[in-house]
Amino acid sequence: MVCEHKHLLDVQNLSVSFRMYDSGLEQKELKVISDLSVSIDRGEILAIAGSSGSGKSLLAHAILGILPENATARGNMRYKGEIMTPEYQEKLRGRQIALVPQSVSYLDPLMSIERQVLGAGKNAKERKPALKNIFGRLQLNESDGRLYPYQLSGGMARRVLVSTAVIGDAELIIADEPTPGMQKQQALEALKIFRELADEGKGVLLITHDVDLALEFADKIAVFYAGTTLELASSKDFRGGEASLRHPYSKALWRAMPQNGFEPLDGFQPYAENLPSGCLFAPRCEMCSERCKTEIPEMRELRDGFVRCFHAT
């Protein structure tokens, strides 16, 4: 894929692997993300949907350059067309790219909410009027700012985490499972905020396992499986049902949704330690052929989307 116009964020062939010690001193590489490509444009919400344990959070950490020491990321990442070196990532973090983390453990237990939402640095105080506004939108009271993380309910904590990303002027927001624990109403409100931000021209990467909720607000959905994307479809395709989807896993995902039959897929996602040598989905796929077992399919363009499958039509 050659990139003709400048994406806000363009990730090409990203692989993330961990150095692990096996029994004794034997070192091995554990590949948790393999050959992943996604791109986000301004004004767009891209949802990355996949079950837990598929390496979604690591994607977020890789983009921000905050992977643990024993992890290495390979591949190409560009922000506004510029290659993301560790130095560039450091400059982008918290300024151009904001993260909405997963749980309350990402808040300092000994610091008041207000101080944490305002953040560090000289212009923290200048953000105070914005804080009031954002808290209002997220149904938080201004006095909640004086609380400490342990005093927050699960839903409140999520909303506080959302507010940390919204308060800055970041152009790209990476939200890592922002909605679980919120009430439906609040989750919708939070996603509406992301939608508004996208409509203002920002890019939003929404990592979620709630395909249903993602469909309502996202423009595109990347189906994530065992550390890579199997399909990139517009959310319109998901609404269109099985026929408009491309990959057998996406179709199975669609069938598994409550309103579409609630039909589970047999088997389980392969663990990073024993990935199949061919297509990652092959062991569970009904269309699986000999070729699928030995060769990894490339991402190819199909009906205005992308799919990683030899047989998809």
Binding site: H61, G94, L99, P101, S105, Y106, L107
Partner: peptide
């Protein structure tokens, strides 16, 4: 996690 988040910010 909170130091990781601080780094991310």
């Amino acid at each position: 996690d909170y130091v990781l988040f601080a780094k991310a910010r």
